[in-house]
Simulated scan of single mutants.
Amino acid sequence: MSITIATWNINSVRLRADLVARLLRDEAPDVLCLQECKSPVDKIPLETFAARGYGHMVARGQKGYNGVAILSRLPLEDAGHRDFVGKGDARHVAARLENGLTIHNYYVPAGGDVPDRDVNEKFGHKLDFLAEMRAWFTDTAPEKSVLVGDLNIAPREDDVWSHKQLLKVVSHTPIEVDTFETTREAGNWVDVTRADIPEGQLYSWWSYRARDWSAADKGRRLDHVWASADIAAAAHGSRILREVRGWDQPSDHAPVFASFDL
């Protein structure tokens, strides 16, 4: 059985419900994980997605910010969530498909603008969030699992438009990259996107601040798909739908896809 999973920071699921429906119609992933939904769960427009065949949802929500949702055309059950750093934020949710695959959907804190936890509480929050992820993976090795989401870190030099110029910019600083990699390694997760596309510049986010985001092309790969080591070899078909960033009133993120033969 081949399952295609997509992840997309939608930057308001209610504002961009039509874009979600368009992606579901055009690309038809089996599962779509959304971050930054900015909506209580009961206000997520599930009926719009159900009309496209996606009537199953597991989600955690908040009014106006954060929020994660897993939409599926396959039956799935709620597999819980974790309250990282004890802030009560809706930044993680998990769901389990009938074949036993567990899907974790994360929205890691962005970290503010200054990469110094002594002067920027948001940066400290981000590092602590990742540290708790790492501790969890160390205690409970993931099996038959996929982890996706806006992890808000571009780890490789070719995951950003300029490694040198972004070394002191939040999302690509050495401490973030080191923390990101030790977190991934703690669970023996495999970066599916880069396993499929090992070379070349690769981005999933372009700032709203750019007058012409495509021409400037100052992107970063902030959105990720990881697989537990036992199923990593079953992954294939990774792609980032850059063109979605150019849709009308878009999110600043593009969807990332991967398929798994399970």
Rank of each mutant, 00 (worst) to 15 (best):
Pro75Ile: 02
Tyr107Thr: 03
Val225Asn: 05
Ile70Glu: 02
Ile175Arg: 10
Pro142Trp: 07
Arg194Ser: 12
Asp118Gly: 14
Ser251Leu: 01
Gly187Thr: 09
Tyr208Thr: 13
Ile10Ala: 03
Pro255Gln: 01
Phe84Ser: 06
Met1Pro: 10
Glu132Thr: 07
Thr140Met: 06
Arg60Lys: 04
Gln201Glu: 15
Leu32Trp: 00
Arg211Gln: 15
Leu222Phe: 13
Ala195His: 10
Lys144Ile: 09
Ala90Met: 13
Ile153Met: 06
Ser162Arg: 13
Arg239Phe: 05
Ala110Gln: 13
Arg22Thr: 08
Asp26Gly: 01
Asp150Cys: 08
His56Pro: 06
Asn188Pro: 05
Leu130Cys: 10
Asp30Cys: 02
Gly246Ile: 01
Asp158Thr: 12
Thr179Lys: 11
Arg134Lys: 11
Gly100Glu: 14
Gly246Asp: 14
Gly112Gln: 08
Asn152Arg: 01
Phe257Trp: 04
Thr4Asn: 02
Leu147Phe: 14
Val148Gly: 03
Asp118Val: 02
Asp159Ile: 03
Lys164Ser: 11
Asp89Met: 09
His92Asn: 14
Phe260Ser: 00
Val93Asn: 05
Val160Tyr: 06
Arg184Met: 14
Asp158Asn: 09
Ala154Gly: 05
Ala6Val: 07
Arg220Glu: 15
Glu181His: 14
Val169Lys: 12
Pro155His: 07
Asp30Tyr: 00
Gly246Ala: 11
Arg82Cys: 10
Pro174Leu: 12
Glu185Ala: 15
Glu243Tyr: 06
